[in-house]
Design a protein around this nucleic acid. Structure first.
Lengths: 191, 191
DNA sequence: GACATTTGATAACAAATGTTATCGTCAGGC
DNA sequence: GCCTGACGATAACATTTGTTATCAAATGTC
């Protein structure tokens, strides 16, 4: 996410470069837990290579909330912001190369950039984007059948379906892995 | 929403008062459409009295996205922000007294307040709140059964269940009105 | 007060979805 | 190369949820 800023706001580059040194590079295997449910999130995570999911355990069953890929950043947002126990686990799906930026530096970063003209708009835009993302997810549950939700994913974010094991996708769509399998075979028969 | 600001940020009061004159007061009966799906949202709506819902029509069936009550403000956010056709309808549930603030003034308002110290944080906090709200709604669909979703609503926002007709609540929970009725009677039997 | 409209409960049946179990394939670890 | 575990397909059955229809109660309108 930090490096994403550079594309949209080149004038921020000096700030961003300044924080490079505080980022800790790590190479981790698949299925590595980067943040455990119940712990307080202390880092912002940037993905150089690989694939990570935000998930949680509900009465023994695993549910996926979101997927993240190269050049994207994530954290357990609410926990990071409010220092509360995270509702979510952060776990790699593939072997990954990541950068960790400790919270204290993110705060400093935000404060310094607050001075920068246009930063208010940037923050506003990014927040609005996130808000609309989750709202659309929510609306999709009201509006769409599981099959439609699968097709939407296939159309709008096909890379997820290509890279992520199917049972994670099923849990993300809110259905069982058996049912997702059925949906796929029904679609194959239709064609 | 505008007036909500006063509680948290008393220093903003002069700004807020300045915008009072631009607000248009209206008294409208129940089931009045304030913004139609497909039209571009031109106003921010503040509720003095009554109850309003954000909803949409999906293949002939009516779905509710959110409920709003006294001292709350709303708009079709994405449409308002990007001047795109609204995905949602805004409709009163009860006879209501509302204030409309045209978009142009909201923009001026935001620009003026951008100068004010602490405004960045305010915007950030409000955006984060909205983001977390929709994220929690989304997660609830992954985690909870319809019965649990109903009980959550009953615990966390009982005023909704008290004031809003049941078929709107059913559509908001993502289930049919018949099923909500069943859930209620099942719960009554359990007690 | 009479009437229409809205709201909510319930029953009967149909469709969608979950659960459990089995099997085959594939990739990674040793 | 062999084993093991992860992954995905499928079947059989159970459960949940939707649909349609009917009825009763409450509410608003005239």
């Amino acid at each position: 996410m930090l490096f994403h800023f550079k594309d949209k706001f080149p004038q921020l580059t000096p700030y961003l470069d300044k924080y490079k040194e505080f980022q800790q590079r790590r190479e981790v295997p698949a299925k590595t837990v980067l943040l455990e449910e119940g712990k307080v999130s202390g880092n912002f995570i940037f993905i150089e290579k690989g694939c990570i999911r935000l998930c949680f355990n509900n009465k023994g069953t695993d549910k996926t909330v979101q997927f993240f890929f190269e050049q994207e950043g994530l954290t357990s947002f609410e926990s990071f912001l409010k220092n509360t126990p995270s509702l979510f686990t952060i776990e790699t799906i593939e072997p990954s190369i990541i950068y960790l930026l400790p919270k204290i530096h993110v705060h400093r970063f935000m404060t310094e950039l607050g001075e920068e003209p246009g930063f208010l708009n940037l923050i506003f835009e990014l927040s609005a984007e996130r808000q609309l993302h989750y709202m659309h997810e929510f609306v999709s549950f009201l509006r769409d059948t599981p099959e439609e939700r699968y097709l939407n994913l296939l159309n709008e974010r096909p890379h997820i379906i290509q890279r992520v094991p199917q049972h994670y996708i099923a849990s993300y769509l809110g259905i069982s892995k058996v049912h997702l399998s059925r949906i796929k075979s029904a679609l194959a028969r239709k064609k």
